[in-house]
């Protein structure tokens, strides 16, 4: 995938302390597309999103968003960049002391000088887009998981961002909410002309709606392709993931010493 890429990740390594998470990873996200990054739990997918947003800095390598290098930005430059980014957190991360309306209005009030009447119209429009205009005066505790996710989505797109990132948008949702969120992600991306990066491990739902998929395992990209390519792929890792096999390249067992030693049979 070459050409007009909005986000480029080049040779990026990252480690928490002395535990390496990403190893010289390369990705490229084209403008206007929805790209999924998949992999097992704890393989560094979320870390990758936070690196792109500049909340973490890579140990080595370069991350470019819209041509600018994120890793070298100062705080105010980062904040200027993030005003053009939206992020949906795993469980929504709505502000619990604000109502649904105030949550969606939050970025508008913080970053624009719009009148309260205009903010009201904008917020109701965003809520309408996620189908929750009627819930504007509820508090976040009164929302179900799927509804909270949709409100958070409305908040993430409040400033019409150029890049929207989703951290596990499907986790813990029932099949209906799951389908709703999936369609919303696609619709919003196309309607706003934005670029979307989605981190997930839900293969079936993602295959239906994304343009391109990267598979990550142990900190590096092991497979990539369009949904069609992935479905017919003979790559053992992809096969294991798509068909949900327990064992394969991703080992069922946590690395352990030889069984004979642990059970004391080596001495016999």
């Amino acid at each position: 995938m070459s050409g007009d890429s909005f986000v480029r990740v080049e040779e990026v390594s990252f480690s928490y302390g002395d535990r390496p998470v990403l190893r010289e990873i390369n990705l490229s996200i084209p403008r206007g597309r929805v790209v999924a990054i998949m992999g097992g739990s704890g393989c560094g997918k979320t870390t990758l999103l936070r690196l792109i947003a500049g909340q973490l800095r890579p140990s080595s390598g370069r991350i470019k968003v819209a041509g600018e290098e994120v890793g070298k930005m100062r705080q105010n430059e980062l904040y200027a960049l993030r005003k053009r980014m939206g992020m949906l957190f795993q469980f929504g991360a709505l502000f619990t002391d604000l109502s649904v309306f105030d949550n969606v209005a939050f970025p508008l009030r913080e970053h624009t000088d719009l009148s309260e009447a205009l903010i009201r119209d904008l917020v109701l429009m965003k809520l309408q887009a996620v189908g929750l205009r009627g819930a504007w005066n509820l508090t976040p505790n009164a929302l179900s998981g799927g509804m909270a996710r949709r409100v958070a989505l409305a908040r993430a797109v409040a400033l019409d961002p150029a890049l929207i990132m989703y951290d596990e948008p499907f986790t813990g949702l029932d099949p209906i909410s799951l389908g709703v969120i999936g369609q919303l992600i696609r619709r919003l991306n196309d309607a706003l002309g934005a670029t979307s990066i989605m981190v997930t491990h839900d293969v079936q739902e993602s295959l239906l709606m994304v343009d391109y998929i990267y598979f990550i395992s142990e900190g590096s990209v092991v497979a990539e392709g369009t949904p069609e390519e992935i479905r017919v792929s003979r790559d053992p890792f992809v096969e294991q993931f798509v068909c949900a096999k327990a064992d394969g390249p991703v080992s069922y067992h946590f690395p352990a010493p030889d069984m004979a030693i642990d059970f004391g049979m080596a001495a016999l």
Binding site: R82, F89, F106, P107, A152
Partner: peptide, 20 residues
Amino acid sequence: EIGLMKTTEQLKAMDMMAVD
């Protein structure tokens, strides 16, 4: 209050929305 906001990623979300 602040600890809960941190646990539920509200502080990170705020930081992502370019609000310190």
